[in-house]
Design a protein around this nucleic acid. Sequence first.
DNA 1: TAAGTGCGTCGTT
DNA 2: AACGACGCACTTA
Length: 172
Amino acid sequence: MKTRHNSQFLELPIETADGRFVAHYSEKGLAGLEFPRDAKERRAELEPCEVPEHIRPWHDAAKQALLQALAGQEPKALPRLDMSGGTEFQQRVWNALRQIGPGKTRSYAEIAEAIGNPKAVRAVGGACGANPIPVLVPCHRVLAAHRKLGGFSGGLHWKRALLEREAVKMDD
DNA sequence: TAAGTGCGTCGTT
DNA sequence: AACGACGCACTTA
């Protein structure tokens, strides 16, 4: 495994039964989470390295939280999150997503209403798609009207799997 | 019922 | 100016 970091982020792998996720850390906290890539498009392997002292507790927490979330349970604790990368509108949406409890769902329209932009339904979809920390910031719990599945930028199979593991019944 | 079309709406690029 | 992880009304089969 090889560590990579661009100017802003340190990237560290998280091994799970569903594959290797990659977490991105800024100086403020967990800033991104990537779904596993299949063998074909996988980039260079990450090599073990010393995790900077201040990152380690975040990474430990992120690992535990991810494993619990993937098992359909509510994480006991989340690492510090850095969502500062988003626009003001996106941050409002992402905060609303964090209010949705495990096993529960909201529609895009309900999120739009919750953040005070009832007509920005479609824009909410865009903000969900831009969520940098899927799974832990549960954008998969947002369904289209009439509990239809809607879309998912990480691949619809993930959305289905995550919802099924939380015992959510959808309508597609 | 199910599937397809058109349009309003609005944040992002 | 164009494009969506939407929602709703409306038309067809």
